[in-house]
Nucleic acid binder design. Sequence first.
DNA 1: CATGAATGAGGGTTCATTCAT
DNA 2: GATGAATGAACCCTCATTCAT
Lengths: 218, 218, 218, 218
Amino acid sequence: MATPANGRGRRIEPGKGGILLTAIDCFTRHGYAGTSIDRIARAAGVTKGALYYHFRDKEQLLFEAVKERIGAFESYVLGKVEPIADPAKSLRAIARICAENAATDNHRRFILTLMVEALDTNVTLSGEFREMLRRFRSFHRHLIRSGQESGLFRNDVDASAAAETFVGGILGAEVQFYQDPEAIDVRSSLETHVDQFLAWLTMPPDAQRRATQSAREV
Amino acid sequence: MATPANGRGRRIEPGKGGILLTAIDCFTRHGYAGTSIDRIARAAGVTKGALYYHFRDKEQLLFEAVKERIGAFESYVLGKVEPIADPAKSLRAIARICAENAATDNHRRFILTLMVEALDTNVTLSGEFREMLRRFRSFHRHLIRSGQESGLFRNDVDASAAAETFVGGILGAEVQFYQDPEAIDVRSSLETHVDQFLAWLTMPPDAQRRATQSAREV
Amino acid sequence: MATPANGRGRRIEPGKGGILLTAIDCFTRHGYAGTSIDRIARAAGVTKGALYYHFRDKEQLLFEAVKERIGAFESYVLGKVEPIADPAKSLRAIARICAENAATDNHRRFILTLMVEALDTNVTLSGEFREMLRRFRSFHRHLIRSGQESGLFRNDVDASAAAETFVGGILGAEVQFYQDPEAIDVRSSLETHVDQFLAWLTMPPDAQRRATQSAREV
Amino acid sequence: MATPANGRGRRIEPGKGGILLTAIDCFTRHGYAGTSIDRIARAAGVTKGALYYHFRDKEQLLFEAVKERIGAFESYVLGKVEPIADPAKSLRAIARICAENAATDNHRRFILTLMVEALDTNVTLSGEFREMLRRFRSFHRHLIRSGQESGLFRNDVDASAAAETFVGGILGAEVQFYQDPEAIDVRSSLETHVDQFLAWLTMPPDAQRRATQSAREV
DNA sequence: CATGAATGAGGGTTCATTCAT
DNA sequence: GATGAATGAACCCTCATTCAT
């Protein structure tokens, strides 16, 4: 009496958890508006009634899906990065996780596409994503600041602004990759991003001064 | 006898052009799926029939809107950047245009949100956006390469990869701003992005060597 | 607690079967294009949603209606005719069934009108009707051939061609009746048709020879 | 300045007549409900406005089309048959005309399909077709009666009933042909019909008596 | 005479949601 | 817990028709 498997070999977990996973899968592939309750129910191998027994409505299903995914991602990152002492290595690890994630499974794509869709659509959900991004930036800000305190990173840059650009670079690489997976190699793209970011952060002040001087003359 | 203004004070231009502008506005605010034909028609002050007189279906309306907007953005950027001789100043100008655009009107937001929505939804349209991004990267690649040839930028970085990170940084800053306009200041965010990018690109080789050495030890 | 009756006194059977019967009725009276889903739903006492729960779309509703009706007619004819040994009596029985059907209920009219409407409209459905007519002709061909083998019918006519004219006569009588029920008495019209057909089939060869001789001189 | 020809080489006659011919063509191919005013206008190479200038509405267009076609057919038949003295040859000629018409152009198909479509739809138009069929039967009744008076046809059959079966046979053959042109050869089918009809009409009374006797025992 | 633009009613279809069993 | 049937609102789209120019 193990959990049955459907025709295509994917395991169908019954009950609330299974429905949630199926919903995540559907939302990732077709977006929120493009996913009907019927489709989720059919894909999960349950009836619509069962679905409505577990979730109040479609929106709540989305909420729980989003929360599950955000939580899973964050705790995964934390688990991987926390043991690392060196901030530079931590940043590199995060970028690598994101690249791996984008190239391999759909977890981050789910988050990113739904985030943009919610932008125009769902205020509450959008708030959830906003908090997530704030936490993400805050996490990097702490990393960067600790790098500055330990003398690894230069002190003359604002940690907040640096965190913003770092997170932005990750998001932008992902967007470009999802949009054009044939032209973009996320892994190397994100590696370049980190290289560039760390080069800038670890740059000796004098070299930096010379560099910006020549560039700022606009 | 002037063209009348609607309740929210925006002028209603009748005819195909007016409908298109209204549609862009609606799509920007509510996404494609979230915008009903009825809504566009009402906002444009015409009936659904009129809308279908000018556009074959909702998708074609979207297509024309997207093409209009992409074309307008690209020619605007070209017009502003082409007269500039210095590649570094060009990059800075582009970032400034994008920041201005994001903070002021909805043109880039329209493109970005619809691009992500089309990802899971509309293959043809997604192709359009893919081409747009390729052109955008290509444009930057040429800028960077010309900087390298003139000795302004270091020669030991791949222009393609650099273009990718530059474009990614812009997209990422925009996404973060749209998601959380109160926490993010696009203008300064993008300025930091350019600073960092140019610092990296104009870095003297020796400083660069030291920087990456310390960072690569992962 | 019995099933309720609608305004016109016809009993409304709920569920899929009831909808199908109502649909047949509507299609018969107003044709396919002239019958809106709304009309069927209203006549069946359900909402459009219920209708779409049971049938994929309007066309499938038509398909099931047609199949039901064709099947019912064919099995009815078979049930009545098979016990009859004499081919001549069988032909007469078929004509009588069709006449009765045309004069009494709408079953054959449904088939005939939709068949003609599908001609210019629905290739797949038209194929269904084509097969039905082929089966009908084939059925008669077998009857006629068996009459020939038992010596009842003359042997110098092609059974296929005879089946064609017999079926044609039935269809033509029906068309004329539906078009002008006041001027046409289907029952006697079809009786004349059978009389004439059997007279020709059972004609002694010599009389036949004389008859055609005089007629063929064109 | 001759009338221009369109791309596919079919001549477009401008003005009312050209529109009418185009309409007939469209109605024949797609039925009344399946033909939009737009389609007719485009096919005729005029705008909808022009069409509404010449015809009050779609129904009137149909009316004029039907009248034109019925009139053309009737005067064609009259012109061919009136010179013929022999009623048997006349009947044969009519059948031949109908077969030729069905196999060659769309004139009779137009009449037949629209007749059936109007049955469920358009009372007035249906009246037009009813009158047409009455005239057609009446025409044959006269032919048959004159054959009876001249001793060619037997006198013991009702001319009206005979006309009914004759016309019915023609209609039935046409229906079968339109439904299944690959299986049905209208020309030979109608020839068999006439053979059979004349055989019956010219049958010597004694043979006829024997024939029906054996058949009537049902 | 003819056109291009626009209307508005209605049609087919989808879908989140409810509810008796 | 779960199901099948049903609802009703909304959506995209078509089409006969009108009208100023």
